[in-house]
């Protein structure tokens, strides 16, 4: 089989996927594909937008339209171009599940005491993590060296662990502007190292140990998440 033949075979296979039609809704719907293709083309052609401005406007709107007791947060993943205002949709012990406010798309962020513990429905999700030791230092505004584990699914659906050692250090005093007013906070840096990666997470923590703002490494595809509590 020559290369030309191999390429023709791949092209034919592609054609077979694209042109099939069926009444069986558990099988692939070709309409779905055209939607995906259309979306990716429109994303490629879309002019760059100022995400900060969009998030700010959405945050203002969400704050004005929701009850003052409802927790709200904003999140941005710059490396994949995701930005959203988040609302709580579920709680499980110390874990909180967040989804985009004003949207029914099935993407969620899970935090544990303010730190991102998992993602779902994004690209290369963070499946779970072992962050209690980091959280303990960060929330108590203490320094130290602790282990930290992030888990992902590989392309063959097997869980792979990224194990880090993190040095948690205090930074400067800052002020965080929440909807309820300015809150004094302390910078806490967590510098993490593994055999083949290193990153620095930054948390702004108030006196009660609540994480108000952070920049947290989530994974090789999602990169850093910038998350702020709005209320």
């Amino acid at each position: 089989m020559t290369l030309k033949h191999s390429l023709s075979l791949f092209a034919l296979l592609g054609l077979m996927v694209l042109t099939a039609c069926t009444n069986d809704d558990t099988r692939l719907d070709p309409k779905q594909l055209t939607t995906i293709v259309r979306e990716s083309i429109s994303q490629r052609n879309a002019p760059p937008r100022d995400k900060d401005a969009i998030i700010e406007a959405a945050s203002r709107e969400a704050l004005s339209l929701t009850s003052p007791e409802d927790p709200l947060a904003s999140i941005q993943f710059d490396s994949v171009g995701i930005a959203a205002v988040l609302r709580e949709i579920e709680k499980n012990g110390q874990h909180t599940v967040w989804a985009a406010w004003g949207s029914s798309d099935r993407k969620s962020i899970v935090t544990k005491n303010g730190m991102i513990a998992a993602t779902r429905g994004l690209r290369k999700d963070l499946m779970s993590s072992e962050a209690d030791a980091v959280l303990d230092l960060v929330r108590n505004r203490k320094e130290g060296n602790v282990p930290y584990t992030l888990r992902y699914l590989d392309g063959d659906f097997v869980i792979i662990e990224a194990k880090y050692t993190c040095t948690v250090e205090r930074g400067y005093d800052k002020t965080v502007a929440l909807a309820t007013g300015p809150v004094p906070a302390l910078q806490m840096f967590s510098s993490c190292v593994s055999a083949n990666r290193q990153f620095v997470d930054l948390f702004l923590v108030d006196r009660s140990g609540r994480i108000l703002e952070m920049r947290q490494w989530v994974g090789p595809v999602l990169g850093f998440a910038y998350m702020s509590q709005l209320r």
Partner: peptide
């Protein structure tokens, strides 16, 4: 031309599951 079955050509990105309700 080389590929690895363990590295998908396109990462599956389905909708998030519903969270467990406690």
């Amino acid at each position: 031309v080389t590929l690895n079955p363990r590295q998908p050509a396109t990462e599956t990105q389905g909708p998030a599951p519903l969270p467990v309700a406690v």
